[in-house]
Design a protein around this nucleic acid. Structure first.
Lengths: 146, 146
DNA sequence: AACTTATAATAAGCAAGCTTATTACATGAA
DNA sequence: TTCATGTAATAAGCTTGCTTATTATAAGTT
């Protein structure tokens, strides 16, 4: 109806539904989507420290801290003090993380399959491209106007 | 990199960024995106009761209840007991709601403009269409498998 | 060396969503 | 009419994210 509001609200709703569906399926595994996402990003850059990972994920550092605390409790992540700068904690996955990552990746593919049913491959490519551009447009880190 | 995960996580991230940007700009108005969204949906169907609106928005009834409590406190929404079924509360906007809706709609257009900068109109149409389809794919109300 | 300034991580407290459980009212069957 | 069942709204408590404020460590200046 009012097209001006369709994009933002639509994205918001679909993202919430995806999260809900994922978490519903993943409940048996004991991991939520948010924690899985941290594991996933971390798996690409082991040894990174928290602030840097938070910046890459464009999440507030404190948000990441809490996820990492739980992941550490659950034995999936290890945090070691950086000896060259003792403020920093370097992050590593444990052996337990690999199977968890794999099973959640499969689960995510299942949700993805449900969500994208009946949508043209070309349109999915466009979706991914547009999301990337939107992310860049919004990522301008708080755009400190001095 | 791994394309299987790009859609879900991308959507999630972009939705979060949109919300953050919107709420950042709207802070002066004292309204958040979630409350504005309730007002917006309500404006299209005044007199509806809570459970029906929750279903349309695909949100848990309790989530809506809390938003409506605050909106009522703030004087933007009125809840009147339905006389034919006294369990129900019918919802109405107050006079204060109209200007709030309008100013937030403008604000939303500003965020939208930032987010969509440099993206082809055709691609935006595709985005909206794909989101609609995804929503339908995911909306299958909890899919009670009996 | 002492002092300021910057940065990594965390603490406190708020917002929004969810699941599960309660309470009040409706409705259909005995 | 009474009793069981169903439904609208809410309560309690969890998760995830945010902003703002603290604390510990680094690093640069005088």
């Amino acid at each position: 109806m009012n097209k001006d509001t369709t994009v933002g609200l639509g994205l918001h709703d679909v993202a919430r539904m995806l999260r809900r569906e994922f978490d519903r399926r993943a409940r048996a595994q004991g991991l939520t989507r948010a924690r899985w996402q941290v594991l996933w990003n971390l798996s690409l850059r082991e040894g990174i420290h928290q602030a840097a990972l938070a910046e890459i994920m464009d999440v507030a550092p404190i948000s990441l801290t809490r996820q990492l605390e739980r992941l550490e409790e659950e034995g999936l992540v290890e945090r070691r003090v950086d000896q060259t700068d003792r403020r920093r904690l370097r992050l590593y996955l444990t052996d337990q993380a690999a199977p968890a990552l794999e099973s959640l990746r499969e689960l995510a593919m299942g949700v993805r399959h449900q969500a994208l049913a009946g949508i043209e491959a070309d349109d999915i490519d466009i979706l991914v491209r547009v999301l990337g551009r939107m992310r860049a447009n919004l990522c301008q880190r708080t755009e400190k106007e001095e």
